[in-house]
Amino acid sequence: MTQKRPVAFVTGASSGIGFSIAKHLKQHGFVVYAGARRVYKMNDLDDIGIHTLSLDVTDSESIQAAVQQIATAEGRLDVLVNNAGFGVFGAIEEVPLEKAKQQFDVNVFGVTEMSKAVLPLMRERHAGRIINISSVDGKIANPLGGWYVGSKFAVEGLSDSMRLELADFGIQVAVIEPGPIKSDWAKIAGEQLLEVSHDGPYQELSKQAAAFLQTVDAFGAQPEIIARKVVQAATARRPRTRYTAGVAAYAGLLGRRLLPDSALDAVLRQTGKLALRYQERSQDEN
């Protein structure tokens, strides 16, 4: 008998990292299901044989319908990649609580609700892997990113607890920690910062943070680098608990390990000021 190919489900697959993860898992022999709210943006995934479906990770009925569709068609689910997420930026004081709750609804509760929905399928076979896309910001705080940072810190902690809870059921949990990625993310985040704090007490800090985001983005990794880390976590006989992805992420986490909080705070504050000066000098030259 021909052994069935392993089945993977990727959330937030309409663009960027999720889109790349779905493609790479397909290339490595997985039957791939890709979920997102904007299904029309996944036509290219359909074209290469990936099953696309509507998914809103903040909607329990949407989650259950998607998982049931996979269970009915495949009878199994081997890998869940919790990738869906976004960033809310601005001072903790200034970001409206509604937006902050939305941040956690997607980045934190979306991860837990997706995981809870697939666990019965995995427990039934005493096998499975849950791969959570966190961030270097899940280890290193930065100014004006508190709500996003907080959500990723939460993903790190939840993943550790899940790993311990699920070990006896043969289910493994791994975390991917990307640094900056080449995308429109930094531009959008910078614009959001300036919009929230354009005339408030954090105006100058917002300019520094936006400049820092744009500078760091120039050294960002391609989404394919993160996708390859996911494939490693999905296929390794004994996956690591954490995979760092991208040169900037390695540098940041090394600084986190070596520097005391006060020194790291000083570095982060100074880099924002330097980035703004560099940006202003470049604009003057142009």
Rank of each mutant, 00 (worst) to 15 (best):
R242V: 08
V108T: 10
Y250W: 15
K23S: 14
A13K: 05
I63A: 09
S206T: 00
G190S: 12
L264M: 12
T11H: 11
A167H: 03
V88C: 09
V106F: 12
W147D: 06
L55W: 04
V7G: 05
G157D: 13
G146Y: 14
K229L: 08
A174K: 03
T2M: 14
D184Q: 15
Q232F: 00
P180C: 15
G190D: 09
P180T: 08
G35M: 14
R242W: 11
T271S: 15
L166N: 06
G128I: 00
L276P: 02
V149Y: 08
I50G: 03
M114F: 10
S115D: 11
G252P: 01
N142F: 13
E204Y: 10
R129D: 15
A141I: 03
H28W: 04
T235S: 08
G87H: 10
V79R: 02
T235D: 02
N142K: 12
L194T: 02
L259K: 11
Q102Y: 05
A189D: 07
I17M: 11
F219K: 04
Y40I: 04
G255C: 08
K229W: 02
E113D: 13
L253F: 11
E285P: 01
L258E: 06
A251I: 14
D137N: 14
L80Y: 05
V95I: 09
A8M: 07
A227I: 00
I226K: 03
H198Q: 07
I225A: 13
G35D: 14
L259S: 09
R163V: 01
G49F: 00
T2H: 14
V32R: 02
E191I: 03
H126C: 08
A117K: 00
I131V: 13
E124T: 04
P260I: 13
I131Y: 07
F9Y: 11
V7L: 09
K116D: 12
T58H: 08
H51P: 02
D46G: 08
K4M: 09
V155Y: 02
E94T: 04
V136D: 04
E177A: 09
T235L: 09
I130N: 01
R237F: 14
D44H: 04
H24Q: 08
Q222E: 15
P178T: 07
P223Y: 03
Q172I: 04
V175G: 12
S54Q: 07
